[in-house]
Design a protein around this nucleic acid. Sequence first.
DNA 1: TTGGAATGTCAACAAGACTGACGTATTTTC
DNA 2: GAAAATACGTCAGTCTTGTTGACATTCCAA
Lengths: 169, 169
Amino acid sequence: MAEGQSQNTSSGQSLLYLTDEQLRQGIEAMFFAYRGFTADPDRILEGLSYGRAHHRAIHFIHCAPGTTVNNLLAILGVTKQSLNRVLRTLIEDGLVTSHVGRSDKRERHLTLTEAGEALEQQLSDAQRVRMRDAYRKAGPEAVAGFKTVLEAMMDDDMKRAYLALREGR
Amino acid sequence: MAEGQSQNTSSGQSLLYLTDEQLRQGIEAMFFAYRGFTADPDRILEGLSYGRAHHRAIHFIHCAPGTTVNNLLAILGVTKQSLNRVLRTLIEDGLVTSHVGRSDKRERHLTLTEAGEALEQQLSDAQRVRMRDAYRKAGPEAVAGFKTVLEAMMDDDMKRAYLALREGR
DNA sequence: TTGGAATGTCAACAAGACTGACGTATTTTC
DNA sequence: GAAAATACGTCAGTCTTGTTGACATTCCAA
């Protein structure tokens, strides 16, 4: 335990930014920032009897149209029962379509309908407004650092999923 | 809507980092990173019939010993009823003590017991290990940028709460 | 002193996550 | 061709954590 307070390496480079206090600040910053991050879409969703789970599904179906249920499961990191509840309502409400796979008929390929795309736009616009403001305030160097730290914070398989999404576009 | 794809200002500075695609990447990075961020403490908690809500309460009581329920409410952003359920179990289990206020007897002042401090240590150690690794990998400049962007992403009142916590130490 | 505001507690309910079990269609493997 | 594995959907039950509503206590100000 308590490796914490060491502040210099043998190489002499200052490691003040690795103190427990600095790390605690980072932890709290993540907590408060994530709240801001989800606040705007949450406000939109709450009027529609949808939740954050629906938003996540819509987001990733938009990014990877035609993706399968299993695929989505891996990205979202939830159980299929949990995802299924969400998908069922989205399909019933005509925001998502589910097509039997051509080569493998066991698979269901998911796509946003026009209405689904419209909601996706509305949600991601709201989220991007905040992100864009934050990015602009912080400047390009800060944004680069931001992404570097976030990537380093991910689990390895999450990082793979994240990078795969970037490749796919 | 769709202000999106503009890429240069009149000042000529490149705004490539503000494209919709870049913003989308940032959004996904937040999603995946937050999962990593909570994964380690969640694993510890799951054996103890506590959840993330208990972790949050413990964290902020540790940071501001003697804080009131109302105070905690403002920081956590949940209803007092929700917080109360969590606090009740923590008090029953002897991790937190609740003292009636001296000047205002309506208030309850919350403190971690020795056992509470021990669990706090265990949880924040786990979380700090990941943060420290991420920080070390990314380097001090990236970390500075990371914090700048996160602060810019917070709601104003959250930012006030965040900065107040930093002052208080 | 009395009525309103603030603080905190109890009870009931809903969303969304989880596990476990089961059914069906399809594909792969032996 | 039969058996095993895969992909998906569903039912039932539980847990955490959020919500609202009702209520008790305490403080303060008119």
